[in-house]
């Protein structure tokens, strides 16, 4: 099978309980650009049970076709039945590209397709495109985020990637747009060896950084865990939340839900303070759309200053406690 025999851009239409994941519309939007380049049709691949009502939404947001795979074994997500079903339709239609949202579900499923289809899978891409050699590439931050890499899958097909949420804006919905629904039957059974025993909504600890108007984030340059007290106090004085870049989560000072960036949360607060954060690409993709960016770092050339509205080249230990006192004084 020559690679030129593989045609079509597929978007995995992740849904749970009959509700599409937001990444699906983002991927359909980006696929319009890819289609302009290759002329290949965009298909949304929709797996589940009683999910055909989602097809209209998929057409409205840019799908040319919907490949609908309904089966009782696919009602709730489980890795092995989804792997089996998606493998069967991909082997039948041979798309050239399959995109998945880099969600917990997408990142659970896509690596299994990489193995079953014996192809490449780029993790958590922040952009996609075609380069000067007409090669489809996936952009990922590499080596601590000081550089970007273009990952390519030169020979194997389909070319697959999980794509980070919130990187692309969905298109304006095309009201009443219609396309072809292809109904596929697959041979798949529920997994007797995997069972979801309980599902509960996540406890809202009231400490979520998503949706916070003010965020004070600490990074690698924070010297001691106890220094976070002053950052937290600053956040609370401004009605905001404490957050962190990855090093402080990796070393266990703060839980993962506090992490901003590529492998954490993407946030857009009105104000963000970056304290002792150099500003890797991974970090920036999680906060670059914030309203007002204020950064304190002792290194003059730190990349975070390139995207900051306000900066101070200083030791945070001399500034943050003083700022806390100053705000308290002015509030008194």
């Amino acid at each position: 099978m020559a690679k030129s025999d593989y045609k079509g851009i597929w978007v995995f239409a992740e849904q749970q309980n009959g509700k599409l994941n937001g990444t699906v519309l983002e991927l359909l939007a980006k696929s319009q650009e890819l289609k302009e380049h290759t002329g290949e049709e965009i298909s949304a691949v929709l797996l589940g049970k009683n999910v055909s009502h989602l097809a209209d939404t998929l057409f409205a947001y840019g799908a040319d076709k919907v490949i609908l795979v309904e089966n009782g074994a696919l009602e709730n997500y489980s890795a092995r039945p989804y792997e089996a079903a998606l493998t069967q339709v991909a082997e039948k239609y041979k798309p050239s590209i399959i995109l998945y949202g880099a969600t917990s579900l997408g990142r659970d499923l896509a690596p299994r397709l990489m193995v079953s289809l014996n192809t490449g899978l780029t993790a958590d891409a922040i952009d996609l495109g075609f380069d000067k050699d007409e090669v489809f590439y996936q952009t990922t931050p590499a080596y601590g985020g000081s550089i970007l890499a273009h990952i390519v899958i030169l020979e194997a097909r389909p070319q697959m990637a999980t794509v980070r949420p919130m990187m692309f804006e969905p298109i304006e919905p095309r009201v009443g747009a219609k396309g072809e629904i292809i109904t596929e039957t697959v041979t798949v059974e529920a997994d007797p060896d995997y069972e979801v025993l309980e599902t509960a909504p996540k406890q809202d600890t009231g400490d979520s950084i998503e949706g916070a108007q003010v965020v004070v984030a600490g990074g690698r340059g924070i010297k001691e865990e106890s220094d976070l007290t002053a950052l937290k106090e600053l956040a609370e004085l401004l009605g905001g939340k404490l957050a962190a870049s990855r090093p402080l989560v990796d070393n266990g000072w703060l839980p993962h839900e506090k992490q901003i960036g590529q492998s954490g949360a993407a946030i857009k607060p009105k104000y963000i303070f970056n304290i002792a954060i150099s500003g890797s690409v991974q970090y920036q993709v999680g906060m670059q759309n914030s309203g007002c960016i204020i950064s304190i770092n002792h290194t003059k050339g730190a990349p975070i200053f390139d995207i900051s509205h306000y900066g101070a080249v200083a030791d945070y230990r001399s500034v943050v406690p003083a700022l806390v006192e100053e705000i308290k004084r002015r509030k008194a």
Binding site: N118, T119, G120, L121, T122, D131, V135, Y137, A142, I147, L148, A149, H150, I151, V152, I153, L154, E155, A156
Partner: peptide, 9 residues
């Protein structure tokens, strides 16, 4: 199957 084709700033 996958490889890095280019690195850029």
């Amino acid at each position: 199957p996958s490889s890095t084709k280019e690195v850029l700033e």
